[in-house]
Amino acid sequence: METFSDLATAAYCPRKLYYRRRDDDRGPPEEVERIRALATRYEELLDSATDLSAEPIATTPTQYRSNLGSAKARLDCWEALVDPLKTDVLLEGKDCRGIAHKLLEDPAVPVVVSAGEPPERGVWEPQSVRATAAAKALAWERAEPIERAFVEYPAYGRIREIRLTTRRKATYRRALRTVQSLDGPPPRLHDDSRCGPCEYREQCGVKTQSLRSRLPL
């Protein structure tokens, strides 16, 4: 059965997934775990008594607390996000399985935590695919529709709610087909913005010219 992380990687670049599978290199680095750990400490990080200088945040302390404060004022499920009943929950659906970093209840909503930088609006396509996969797996387990999910970017104090639109579901299905059919190195993504920061760019042999980010969904 395919995994959420493989689907997200395929949405970013199928060739990157090929290299990760070949090298059996799909575990998150230690720094990623440090950043994800921020997602269960939001109230502590909002407290002005907490020294943020040693935390793995990617903004100034003032901006960070401003971002978190905006999320707290905007979201009606803030308390559940800050102190979820369940974390790192394995979900197994019809087509894929993986970890929801948080699982909210009443109503049931999966949460994906990303160590990266958020776009100005929405979420990046790989996180959209991963969150959609988590929602569909949860819907399969519960035998009930799950039509939304959250993606958190805790290094920036940003929390984004997404709806499982027709477009998101179609992107998820495309990533699923890509993973299921992967049996050799896919074509290179020449001069694509995704190639610049990729850890496999040297062995891939692609030439990069731009580091601009992908458009969010």
Rank of each mutant, 00 (worst) to 15 (best):
R163T: 08
T171G: 00
R168F: 06
R188D: 05
R177L: 11
Y153E: 07
Y153I: 03
R167A: 12
S181Y: 09
Y153D: 05
V179F: 03
P154H: 15
P154Y: 14
R168Y: 11
R160K: 07
K169T: 09
R160I: 03
P187D: 03
P185A: 09
V179C: 06
P186H: 09
R174S: 11
T165C: 14
T166I: 04
K169C: 09
I159N: 02
R188T: 10
G157N: 01
E161S: 14
I159S: 01
P185E: 06
R160N: 10
D183Y: 05
I159C: 00
R160H: 10
R173A: 15
R167Y: 08
T165H: 14
T165F: 14
V179L: 07
I159L: 13
R158N: 01
R158V: 15
P154D: 09
A175L: 13
T171R: 15
R177M: 06
R167C: 01
R158S: 05
S181D: 13
V179T: 02
Y172G: 00
T166Y: 07
R167S: 13
I162Y: 01
L182Y: 06
L182T: 01
S181G: 07
Q180S: 02
R158D: 09
V179G: 01
P185S: 07
P187V: 06
R163C: 02
Q180C: 03
T166L: 11
L189N: 09
K169L: 13
Y172A: 06
L189M: 14
L176F: 09
V179D: 04
I162T: 05
L189H: 10
G157S: 07
G157A: 02
R177C: 02
T166H: 08
R177A: 11
T171D: 14
T166D: 10
T178D: 05
E161V: 06
R163G: 10
R167V: 08
E161L: 14
R163D: 07
P154V: 14
R160E: 15
T165D: 12
R160F: 04
V179I: 08
P154T: 12
P186K: 07
R188P: 01
G157D: 00
R188L: 08
I159K: 02
R160C: 03
Q180W: 01
I159P: 00
R168D: 14
P186M: 11
R168C: 10
I159F: 10
G157V: 08
L176S: 06
R173N: 13
T178H: 05
E161R: 15
A155N: 10
S181Q: 13
P187I: 09
Q180V: 01
T178P: 01
L164P: 04
S181E: 15
T171I: 15
R160G: 00
P187E: 07
P187A: 11
P187N: 07
L182P: 02
D183G: 01
R173T: 12
T166Q: 08
L182D: 02
A155Q: 09
L189D: 02
G184L: 04
